[in-house]
Amino acid sequence: MINFQRIVRRREFTVLVLILILSAIFSFTTERFLSVSNITNLLLQLSGVAITAIGMTMVIITGGIDVSAGSTLGMACVVSGYLLMGGYSPFLALVLAVLVGLGIGFVNGAIIVWGDVPPIIATLGMMNLIRALMFQTLGGRWISGIPPACRTIGLGKWLGVPIPMWIATFLIIVFSYFLSYRPLGRHIYAVGNNPEAARVSGVNLKSTIIFVYALTGALAGFAGLINAARTGIVQTNSGMGFELDVIAAVVLGGTSALGGRGTIIGSLLGAFLVGIIKNGMVLLNVPALSEGLVIGALIIISVLADIIRARRETR
């Protein structure tokens, strides 16, 4: 028998209910919310967040954070933008975008592990360094007019659903399985719950941590390629603030910033929640300015709710 109480108590359930309520409100109050073009648009926009959130979920489960994801996405945009403009195959652009992201993520992990530098410091520094390098590579110009033939990965559809969303779905399934059933996946939870106990029981702390940052970088790089292909434009500020959307999605999805708890599905739902709020506010003509207010308040409310619930359960 299914234990309904357990399902209802999960964060994922609460977020799902919130998404349904908001969708209902938006579809009654606006005409365009349920239109095909709007939903396609919504899915396109949140697929990048959903893909990067896979890695960020693991980073936060280990008790860390990666604020350089936006810059990493931007750098991958630059690299793939140049390659696509230069007439190279989109596949090469994909490989290099992922490699650039992987490299940045690996450096993050290496600084954190071998230099014993707190994750917020390492990735904050990296965020600005990469942004400056991006500026240097672009030389103050921007890339536009990527040939339409190369933009399938960002704009194409299959069975009516945008290709980026298919990719996100595929990656989410693979990594959810990985996180729940593979040894390395379980190690990630162990490191977040109790690093000392994990170390004693034979988990390689250092390589686990480097792995999660490298993976986040690689996924942000992948999202960068999709972003460049979708928008067709790369600027110095591409991906600025993207990391906040990803972190918001992960935290809203129930991953505890104290480490040790969280699921990728939760983060996907979090990404949907953030995406729907942004989308609905645009449709309702609420100024985009209050977006930050709503997302910030939601983060605080959801974390507070968790803490209050935890206190009640321990009593």
Partner: peptide, 29 residues
């Protein structure tokens, strides 16, 4: 939020960053 709510400073001030920035933009209209 940090001392009474017992939420991690990183999360509190990240949310705060969103909120105050957004308020500033709204007031500036």
């Amino acid at each position: 939020l940090v001392s009474v709510g017992k939420i991690l400073p990183l999360i509190v001030t990240l949310a705060g960053m969103y909120i105050y920035r957004s308020l500033a933009l709204i007031i500036a209209v």
